[in-house]
């Protein structure tokens, strides 16, 4: 997954001639789409941050919902606008707390992976030699290791929690960040400003942090937007397999897993978290796409 994304990130997007061929109406739709994506992201982030303050019905402690209706169908007029699950837990509240987990893991894992990967990649690309070879060997080994086995193992060693899942997913993103950062560094090292700094007697660490880092950060960040979306999907998949945060603490993935067997009778158990996740990932992808095409335009 990571490697293919990295490959895609290296792909040049459409050329200028192609862009001018796009119609005017298309541009407006693109803008509208982008704004809608932003709006959804603002809502979902807001809800995730404010979940404790907002007046949701109980969504996490089934001990408090013994007398709530179980498996209530969505009804906007009731106290449970999106319905309840088997244990009487509110699905709207579940969405909010699930968003918190998804976003924490998605952003946390990406940030951590990006930071570690970038530093290693920068150093390896700058120092070269034996260190570079060792780093190359390690990243290749990490990429060859089946990611699910690593995740299952990590979760089995330490009990599944947001922190464990974030760290293990971060570990999985490290190799592609290392490669990306190293590749960028290699193109920068022979450039004039680096040579100049070297000629002026700057120390290696100064060159890495003052000269190279600022130039490597931006491409990393734009790639990171897509990675956040991928991490949210990965977290949901882990939750779905029962390898992330455990019920009754809601995540989008574990809500879907718990509801899938009764899809026929109670489709809302699956559809509510599924739609939320789909819209979130779609929005992040849309923003990522916009950022990338803007970047390409600037580059030209």
């Amino acid at each position: 997954m990571q490697s293919s994304e990295a490959t895609e990130a290296r792909q040049p997007a459409r050329s200028g001639a192609a862009r001018s061929r796009a119609g005017r109406g298309r541009l407006e739709w693109r803008t509208l789409r982008l704004w809608l994506a932003f709006a959804w992201l603002v809502v979902i982030i807001g809800v995730a941050v404010l979940a404790d303050v907002l007046p949701f019905a109980e969504a996490r402690n089934p001990g408090k919902t013994l007398y709530e209706p179980a498996l209530a169908t969505p009804d906007l007029a009731s106290g449970h606008p999106l319905g309840t699950d088997r244990h009487g837990l509110d699905l709207l509240g579940g969405l909010a707390y699930g968003a918190r987990v998804s976003l924490t893991v998605g952003i946390g894992a990406t940030a951590l992976g990006c930071l570690i990967g970038m530093l290693i990649g920068l150093t390896a690309g700058f120092v070269r030699g034996r260190l570079d070879a060792v780093v190359g060997l390690l990243t290749d080994s990490m990429l060859a290791f089946p990611p699910l086995i690593l995740l299952i193992g990590a979760v089995a060693v330490m009990r599944p929690s947001v922190l464990v899942v974030t760290c293990s997913l971060a570990l999985l993103t490290v190799p592609s960040y290392v490669r990306l950062a190293r590749a960028h560094t290699l193109t920068l090292v022979p450039r004039e400003f680096v040579l100049q700094a070297r000629a002026l007697g700057a120390t290696s660490s100064r060159i890495v942090f003052k000269e190279l880092l600022p130039n490597v950060v931006w491409p990393m960040l734009s790639y990171s937007i897509v990675v956040v979306a991928a991490m949210i999907v990965s977290e949901a998949s882990l939750s779905y397999l029962g390898l992330s945060v455990q019920r009754p603490n809601p995540t989008w993935g574990n809500m879907i897993a718990a509801g899938q067997d009764s899809f026929q009778q109670y489709p809302h158990l699956v559809l509510v978290p599924a739609v939320a996740m789909f819209l979130t990932v779609l929005s992040i992808n849309a923003v990522g796409e916009a950022v990338r095409s803007r970047e390409l335009r600037n580059a030209r």
Partner: peptide
């Protein structure tokens, strides 16, 4: 047919499928 109707529709479709995790597609 870049920018034309087929391109727009197929790109949107691809974009949507990309945002669905495998397990949801399967379900």
């Amino acid at each position: 047919r870049q920018g034309r109707i087929f391109d727009r529709w197929s790109s949107s479709g691809v974009f949507a499928v990309m945002s669905l995790p495998t397990f949801l597609i399967g379900i």
